[in-house]
Design a protein around this nucleic acid. Structure first.
Lengths: 203, 203
DNA sequence: ATACTTTTGTGATTTTTTTCACATAAAAAA
DNA sequence: TTTTTTATGTGAAAAAAATCACAAAAGTAT
């Protein structure tokens, strides 16, 4: 099958919209509606679906619940995934408190920090000492990590995650990290993102 | 000139690395070093430079300070840019406290919120009532905004920003927003980013 | 029942982005 | 000095992604 990174990202966005539609009891949706919502064209939407063998009904569009079910299957959204966050600063806390994750099968299982003043074993999720990460990750079979620590600690945190058995991470430290080929890392550099807004605004 | 969105984003990343190199007094850099750092190839780096007429020295690579100067010019990093954040929650505060912006000519001029308990006129940057946004933006000539409010308020905030004269925004609300063609909006959907990590980890 | 309209689905085409291949220059070595 | 080695720079080629063009199906109108 000929897939692409771009279309997979869009599938997640379509799914997001479909969930919103389902919540307001919308039954049918057209490729054009999906396109408008995520800011692309209906041709792109249908092409994406075509690549993944997702089909609708001529003239009648797509059934929201049906399409959603197929996307869930395709994107592996039927299994719950545990996630750990390292760094209980503002970004870590923002992600911890974001209740949208849980609905999407993403469970923030725990936060970890170097600063003992931030420990909170009774919170849900708990904030634990970084020393506990290795044990927690292996005994809870966690595969996903989020790095929300300052630059200088980021590589060290990633190495620890890898050694503990984590397979993919989202990194907020604005510095590229080294990881093995079979490890997937998604670098989110908010400064660069903001800088690019400035750039395009000046165009 | 044949440019591309992708290469512009990379130029910002190269620049990031060059700043780090300059800070440790590195004088020369090779395309291969730049490539390794941002996770691409040296061919890509040279191609990017070629597109923007950035040149180095055969066999001796590039002069860090010289390249940085050229990138600053190219990316419009010589002018200071004021930025306002709407939403003084965790994400808003995380961005406010991130001191990396200031060094990059990005000044968080003020935060705005609907919740009066969050107001703090004496803080730097101040946290002001949303009602003050229009006046603040127009009198301070702010062109960039950051939307860090819940979904339901996001479109309203964007409309307000647009009416006040803001030209580009970074949006953290996980819902696509409508804006005119001449407005640049960078949607950051952290949930989708995390979901894609999970997806690629399962591959 | 037939024509018309709307929407999906996809091969073909175009555009964009990345990679290749190699000419060219400069430094280092012989 | 001449050769070799190591980088850059870029047109050409390949790959990836987006768009086009149009067939096909299904609903609506006549």
């Amino acid at each position: 099958m000929k897939t692409s990174k771009q279309s997979i990202l869009r599938l997640f966005q379509y799914r997001d919209f479909l969930i919103r539609l389902k919540n307001i009891n919308t039954v049918n949706v057209f490729s054009d509606n999906l396109a408008k919502d995520i800011g692309t064209t209906s041709i792109q939407v249908r092409k994406d679906f075509s690549l993944f063998r997702l089909s609708g009904n001529k003239k009648a569009g797509y059934k929201v619940s049906n399409l959603l079910k197929q996307l869930d299957e395709l994107l592996g959204k039927n299994k719950k995934q545990k996630v750990v966050i390292v760094g209980a600063g503002n970004i870590g806390k923002a992600l911890m408190q974001y209740d949208g994750f849980y609905k999407e099968g993403l469970e923030i299982a725990a936060l970890f920090d170097y600063d003992r003043r931030k420990y909170n074993h009774k919170n849900n999720p708990p904030v634990l000492p970084i020393e506990d990460l290795f044990k927690f990750v292996s005994s809870n079979n966690v595969k996903i990590g989020i790095i929300a620590v300052p630059c200088k600690a980021a590589q060290q945190v990633l190495d620890l995650m890898i050694s503990a058995g984590i397979k993919g991470a989202m990194n907020f430290a604005p510095i590229p990290l080294k990881s093995p080929k079979n490890f997937y890392i998604n670098n989110i550099n908010l400064r660069v993102e903001l800088e690019s807004v400035v750039y395009y605004t000046q165009m």
